[in-house]
């Protein structure tokens, strides 16, 4: 029934030096629909595909505002993400209250990283079953960071997590060197192209299943859903003839 005898608890090592409970939690992340994050020198963008459990249900929220300068996108157990986002929102408020400044993005993600790490240390705890891409803008510019159940926090130029996210990463790896100088609109479009690569055969990005979030220099964190995403969806194919061609040509 069990894969092995070392996976009953997150605080138990396997002789090979692995913590299976954390690895299982990471599997939960891979089952969530994909999210993509990417950054230019002034902006940082999140795009995500929302899933709906069935025809009658609404689409699950993928992107959440933390503060005017920060937002997250989630893949995995959304209820775990809600706990983490509530914590981040509280800390962001506290930073404003105590220091009168927006919470530095790297510190924010390290704070939830520390919480995830505690779950791998103490008996009877369960690792968070969610991965996050956190975007934000602070004194050091735009940031894109990843949080995962192991408590490891990494910063990226561009990244994706969730189901079939390897396809998006392949796209991003091919193009990320051009992202630095892109406008916000072009950055969103590039993100959507990478996100499209994660879709199953026959599935399309549309106004129902697409979520966009961005923040940057002089731009407060903004979320776009529904009809508001149409203007960017229209650019995916149109731009491919120009911008996409240029990227591939390099």
């Amino acid at each position: 029934m069990f894969r092995n005898q070392y996976d009953n608890d997150a605080s138990t090592w396997s002789p090979q030096g692995r913590i299976f409970q954390v690895e299982y939690a990471s599997e939960a992340v891979k089952q969530g629909s994909a999210v993509v994050g990417l950054r230019s020198k002034d902006h940082v963008v999140l795009v995500a595909v929302k899933r709906s459990p069935n025809e009658l249900a609404s689409y699950q929220k993928k992107i959440v505002r933390i503060d005017d300068h920060m937002g997250i996108a989630m893949a995995g157990l959304t209820s775990d993400a809600r706990v983490l986002s509530n914590y981040l929102r509280t800390e962001a408020m506290r930073s404003k209250m105590v220091y009168g400044r927006p919470l530095p993005v790297g510190r924010a993600v390290n704070m939830i990283g520390d919480r995830a790490q505690i779950n791998t240390l103490e008996y009877g705890r369960r690792p968070y079953g969610v991965g996050l891409l956190v975007i934000g803008y602070d004194d050091a510019g735009p940031h894109l960071l990843e949080f995962n159940p192991s408590g490891i926090v990494s910063e990226y130029y561009a990244y994706s997590i969730g189901a079939r996210s390897q396809s998006a990463r392949t796209n991003l790896e091919r193009n990320f060197e051009q992202f630095q100088d892109l406008s916000l609109q072009e950055l969103v479009t590039q993100g959507l192209r990478a996100l499209r690569d994660t879709l199953q055969q026959g599935k399309q990005l549309d106004t129902m299943n697409t979520s966009i979030g961005f923040v940057g220099k002089d731009t407060k964190f903004t979320m776009l859903d529904g009809e508001a995403t149409q203007q960017y969806l229209d650019l995916i194919d149109e731009g491919a003839r120009h911008a996409g061609g240029r990227c591939d040509g390099d």
Binding site: V98, Y99, G100, R101, R107, D139, A140
Partner: peptide, 11 residues
């Protein structure tokens, strides 16, 4: 990242 003057003042 450093604490700016406004943050010190707020504190």
């Amino acid at each position: 990242q450093t604490l700016g003057t406004k943050s010190v003042y707020k504190y």
